[in-house]
Computed example of a mutant assay.
Amino acid sequence: MTVLKKTDLVPPFWLPGGHLQTIYPALLRKITDVNYIRERILTPDDDFLDLDWSFSKTKSGKLVILSHGLEGDSNRQYVLGMVRLLNKNGYDCLAWNFRSCGGEMNQTSRFYHSGATDDLDHVVSYAAGRGYQEINLIGFSLGGNLTLKYLGETERHLNPLIKKGIVFSVPMDLKACSLAIIKRENRVYMQRFMNTLLPKVSQKAKLFPDHINMEKGSLVKTLYDFDDIYTAPLHGFDSADHYYESCSSMFFVQNISIPTLIVNAMNDPIVPVRSLPLDLVISLSNVQLELSRYGGHCGFRPSRVFNAVYWSEKRALNFLQSENL
């Protein structure tokens, strides 16, 4: 399988560089015509997950499950844009919200993390019971890593209804990306994440004071610190490094058995292209990696937008509808 180092994505001339191609869609793209129906399901550990369904007018029996990024939710523009296009083309969509991301704090001491595939598996199992003939998975950023890890876990019997996987802007090497976001030019992204992560931990600490020590909060200066002090111990890892080593999807992709598309931009400021396991992916028969010269992180706005559709959404639909990898 070849790595496609070029795609047909051409960004607007007025959005030069990966930062603007990341920030513009995140802040200024508005999608108001997706209508979700929310459903709450319980988890085996007495917590809950909020699922947002959006149904196609055409009953094709096909479902796409979408996993958002770090501190995102089902209402992020990259999720909504994808849902809208897929609905118009006969796919029902289920955009699930990670624990603590659906607008209400979850009930257990744990949150979510880049490798929490037990929750994704619970969502898949629940959706499979709704009578669908085909299920596909799409993930963005952290949700992309989660999706790839899930598809490649050898100890898990993958539901035969799952036919394809698609991920965008995926941090396959979690440590490399955690260190990249510390750079001065990326601090705006890290600060945005920290502005919501730290208040969540503070709120959680009041509910579970024996599990979370907020006195260490002053030591958290970076996302790496946050993962080392909070994410890792809350989820059974010894340290941030142990967490990254255990959950980075680059250690799982070689076991993926269904057609899977990975799309990353070469100018992604959060996921350096050098962090991607290019040599490994080239050798895989079921995984295709496309490197776009442009797109930023979860951006992918084309120079000309037809019917409000972004390039990444068209690419995902094309891959889902294609008979070949």
Rank of each mutant, 00 (worst) to 15 (best):
K314L: 02
P199I: 03
S239E: 07
D227W: 11
F251V: 03
Y126H: 15
R84I: 05
P16T: 05
R304K: 14
K200C: 06
E155Y: 14
S114G: 11
V309Y: 03
Q107H: 12
Y112T: 13
E215T: 13
G217W: 00
E215Y: 12
P44L: 05
L28C: 09
L219F: 09
S312W: 01
C247H: 15
P209M: 07
K163W: 13
Q107C: 04
S239C: 10
N286Y: 12
L280C: 10
N267C: 09
L28N: 09
E245T: 08
E155I: 10
S285L: 06
C298D: 13
A95G: 05
A128S: 15
V79H: 00
Y36T: 08
D238M: 04
L15A: 08
L80H: 08
V253D: 14
L142H: 00
A180T: 07
K204N: 03
P11F: 04
L197C: 05
V287N: 04
R156C: 05
E134G: 07
K57A: 03
N324Q: 06
R130K: 15
C101W: 02
V124K: 00
P209S: 05
P11I: 10
E155A: 15
G236T: 13
V10R: 09
P259W: 13
V167G: 08
S303V: 08
L219I: 06
W53M: 02
K88D: 14
I138H: 05
S169C: 10
M172P: 10
R130Y: 00
S60A: 08
S100Y: 11
S257M: 05
W53P: 00
S257P: 04
M1I: 02
G17N: 03
K183P: 14
G236N: 07
I181N: 11
S60Q: 07
N89S: 11
Q191W: 13
I256L: 14
K164H: 09
L148P: 12
D73L: 02
D210C: 04
H297P: 10
E153Q: 15
F55V: 14
C177Y: 12
T43D: 01
T154C: 13
M82A: 13
S54L: 06
N307W: 12
I258G: 12
P11W: 03
T108A: 02
K216I: 02
C93K: 01
T222K: 05
K30P: 03
T58I: 10
M266F: 07
T147E: 08
R110Q: 10
P16F: 12
K88F: 01
L325A: 07
T7A: 03
L28T: 12
S54Y: 07
L27K: 13
V167R: 03
A127P: 07
L197K: 01
G217I: 14
G17A: 02
N186C: 13
F252R: 13
N267I: 09
T154W: 01
V305D: 01
N89D: 09
I256D: 11
S303E: 15
N195M: 11
E71L: 08
P12N: 11
D173M: 11
L63T: 09
W96V: 08
C298E: 06
K57L: 11
Y36P: 10
T260C: 01
F300W: 01
S125W: 09
V10Q: 04
L289E: 05
L280A: 00
L276I: 12
V34W: 14
G72W: 00
H242Q: 12
